[in-house]
Design a protein around this nucleic acid. Structure first.
Lengths: 355, 355
DNA sequence: CTGAAAGCGCTTACAG
DNA sequence: CTGAAAGCGCTTACAG
């Protein structure tokens, strides 16, 4: 059942049938109606999309490469919100979004093997096989929260500015014993001065940058707690636990999810937030406002980020020059998880305590 | 830059190059290495996926049709969890998931126009254009939480059993003034006996079924609050507000999100949960355990649902017969948002009060 | 192990 | 307004 089947039934040529479906202005209303109704009768669903894609050189599909697998990425509300916004904007423009896992196990590398017109790469390193494959195919690409790559437009938020505000907020409240909880950095409760702050994640790098700048200005050397992994994992949880053995008065976390992790673990040990430990997150995850105490965090506009990524890619598809828009703004949102440090209670092992 | 370019450079035929990429066992190690390295030198990324899809009759892409647009669907953690599980399972099998919006605005109907090997239809009515297009294309389809359709395997949870347990829980606690909050049903604070409980949503239908059965057994006639829309909208919010003018002692909500809506509105009016009003949700959304008071709800296993949908589709793609697995189990999770009704305080307008 | 032939199902200029 | 020709870039049996 192809164009030809219909053509023979109606008694016209194949391309007249093709025109009936794809270029209505190329034939009479009447003939078109006859063709379409014949197609309907025969149960022909329309031109085969794969054949059409080959002939037109256009698929209507845009790829989305996520940090790890979609399975991992979709545990993060921020990533989900981004995908949602991109899918929405692209859908309005007539494109559909295909989710590509970046790590090609089982020999399948979707970024190389799936037919598409362009791709959005979210939070990925340039060395990833998915990114390489996309570049080799010379597909229009937009990078989002990724390491900059020459010629590839980049969308991102102003992580450093947001982080600076977050750290300054703690300093202004009077905190000086501060811990930083991150991923993509191997650090087990060590002073920042003792370790290298190099990380493969541009997002973390930006945030570290902002935090450290504000803390250095205040003469504060934070304790670093981090995992080599990209997400919250057992290693990080264990190190957070160790941190709480002798807790700082405040914590800067690389995400709201990490901040909630700290809050939950603190609660398990009856350490009060914010009375004994202030916690600041990042992202303004929908959860942040709903937990108790509500989380102080740095807000970013996920919808705007998704919309921006979609629009830049769309302009690339129109063969317009690639431009990276300015970094999207971030803003501190002060809620209930931060307060002034209370005077340090004497600890049991403190020589000044007891008799 | 095609297979031919490489073939000419190496001095072999096109299909030897094709074999080098697609059927390594068809040529010598040595020749293959030469071809691959020539391709690499020339910057050839591999066989064009669109051409390959046409020739092979296989794209490696599976479509996912969501109730409304991906934009709407992705506001719901339950739908997101489902997409996540499906994308994960399908990814393991070498397939990528393309998000299809069901309502073809702007003339684009992705379900008709996108090349794919099969599709999963989530929470859709059979009349939807996306579903029709998929059927006309004779693509393998799996329905999830959708109205049954002959020949199409169906995956779903046991909504009725879960709802029954939820309603029974309230009845057992001693409640008799109970309201039911739903979508996909137009009801403005009316007794269930006064209206038709017909709904286009199979999910809601199943839940209504379970709730009503338990309530009827207890001789309770619930008040119905619903919106014709498919999601929580302004209409539903207004009707919930009206319900709270003279609140029931307990509410059964069609989702955790709807339950949270009730709880938030109750809080705004200083109506205590659960002391003055018990609330039961549905789904066991990740939020349910985190809000305060923690929400009593009916748990469903989203991961299992996604995995089941993927496996059934995969078996269809292997041309195995279509079988609908049994409905997935649900279970009541009792948390802090439900309690015995306290004795009704005399209301101001109550003749027994004051005087 | 290698290649010539046929085919996958459409669309794009272009001529009439 | 309609159609004959060329082409999109690959793969699948199959013969040698």
């Amino acid at each position: 059942m192809t164009l030809k089947t219909i053509a023979e039934h109606v008694g016209v040529s194949r391309m007249t049938v093709s025109n009936a479906f794809s270029r209505p202005d190329q034939l009479s209303e009447d003939l078109r109606a006859r063709i379409l109704s014949a197609a309907d009768d025969l149960g022909y669903a329309g031109p085969d999309p794969a054949a059409r894609a080959l002939a037109r050189g256009r698929t209507g599909v845009i790829g989305m490469v996520l940090t790890n697998s979609p399975r991992d990425a979709f545990t993060d509300d921020v990533a989900v919100g981004f995908v949602r916004a991109v899918a929405g904007s692209l859908g309005d423009a007539g494109y559909s979004l295909v989710l590509l896992h970046s790590s090609g196990d089982n020999g399948v590398v979707p970024a190389r093997d799936i037919a598409m017109d362009g791709a959005i790469v979210y939070s990925c390193a340039p060395a990833m096989s998915a990114f390489t494959a996309l570049r080799e195919r010379r597909l229009p690409i937009v990078n989002v929260e990724s390491l900059p790559f020459p010629g590839v437009p980049d969308i991102g938020i102003d992580d450093a500015a947001g982080a600076y505000q977050a750290a300054k907020h703690l300093v202004d409240l009077g905190h000086s014993r501060i811990a930083i909880v991150v991923a993509a950095l191997d650090a087990d409760n060590l002073p920042s001065s003792d370790i290298s702050l190099n990380t493969a994640s541009p997002t973390i790098a930006g945030r570290l940058d902002g935090w450290m700048r504000a803390l250095e200005q205040a003469g504060v050397v934070p304790t670093m707690i981090g995992t080599p992994g990209l997400v919250i994992d057992a290693v990080l949880r264990e190190r957070i636990d160790r941190m709480l053995d002798d807790p700082p008065t405040a914590v800067l976390a690389f995400s709201d999810l990490a901040a909630l992790e700290v809050m939950e673990r603190a609660r398990d040990r009856d350490i009060l937030v914010p009375e004994q430990i202030s916690v600041v997150g990042f992202d303004d995850n929908p959860l942040a406002a709903r937990v108790s105490p509500a989380l102080t965090t740095v807000r970013q506009d996920i919808d705007a980020k998704g919309e921006a990524a979609a629009q830049v890619l769309l302009s690339l598809l129109r063969e317009e020059p690639a431009v990276s828009p300015p970094r999207l703004p971030t803003a501190l949102v002060v809620r209930a998880s931060t307060s002034r440090p209370r005077d340090r209670a004497p600890r049991e092992s403190d020589p000044r305590a007891g008799g």
